[in-house]
């Protein structure tokens, strides 16, 4: 039990410190690396409470895909200067009220959720979560997702699909005058299409149409 709590406090300390460092570090790329460290330690916490499936999905989706794209954007656009401007100038005081409002909102939300657990502890064990020990994590998640919450699950999938198509449509632009390579055209090209043998009369030459 002692080892368990040692690990728990280590991971949560790393998570909190790296979350602070995400906003505090001057270098934007460092911020992203701290964000990745945060994700990893949170997925470790997930695994520690026995939610191994969630922990692994967290690693795969957030660290393996989302954070890579984050890193891409931060490295390509030079946002480092912008961030420094925001923090050094007097402009930054403009953002304080918004930050306060958002953080109060999140705080109230967390209070409501945790208060709900305290107020009605039976919320925890609705559905068939009683036999958690006999069934593996993945099975029980699948059983709930694909039976009780199938509509919500499908709708969230549709929303993601629509968001993806929207993003593609927004960034898609057709440029004129770009040479495109057509594989079928290339492969189906025969000798006759490219080469022509002509009989050339002397002192006449050949007219090449271009």
């Amino acid at each position: 039990m002692i080892a368990h709590s040692i690990f728990f406090y280590t991971f949560s300390l790393i998570a909190i410190v790296s979350a602070i460092m995400v906003t505090a570090s001057k270098n934007t790329v460092h911020s992203v690396f701290f964000l990745i460290l945060d994700f990893i330690s949170i997925s470790c916490l997930f695994i520690m409470i026995g939610a191994e499936f969630l922990g692994m999905i967290m690693l795969i989706v957030y660290v393996g895909a989302v954070a890579v794209l984050f890193l891409f954007v931060v490295m390509m656009l030079n946002v480092a200067q912008q961030k420094n401007q925001w923090f050094s100038s007097k402009e930054s005081s403009k953002h304080i009220p918004f930050g306060l409002i958002i953080s109060t909102l999140i705080f109230v939300e967390i209070l409501i959720v945790i208060g709900g657990w305290k107020y009605k502890p039976e919320i925890f064990d609705i559905n068939n979560s009683a036999n958690l020990n006999s069934v593996s994590n993945t099975h029980s998640l699948g059983k709930i997702l694909y039976t009780d919450y199938i509509h919500v699950f499908q709708i969230s999938g549709m929303i993601l699909l629509v968001a993806m198509i929207g993003a593609i449509v927004l960034t898609f632009r057709q440029r004129a005058g770009v040479k495109k390579q057509s594989y079928i055209k290339q492969i189906s090209r025969e000798r006759v299409d490219g080469v022509e043998v002509l009989e050339v009369e002397s002192n006449k030459g050949v007219k090449i149409d271009d």
């Binding site: 790329v29 499936f53 692994m56 795969i60 660290v63 393996g64 895909a65 890193l71 490295m75 993945t138």
Partner: peptide
């Protein structure tokens, strides 16, 4: 572990960071 294949997949998807970090 119960999620062995996910673990393998997660670790192999983390492999990209060594390369990005080195390059940057």
């Amino acid at each position: 572990i119960n999620v062995g294949i996910l673990y393998l997949f997660a670790v192999s998807s983390l492999g990209v960071y060594g390369i990005i970090m080195g390059g940057w």
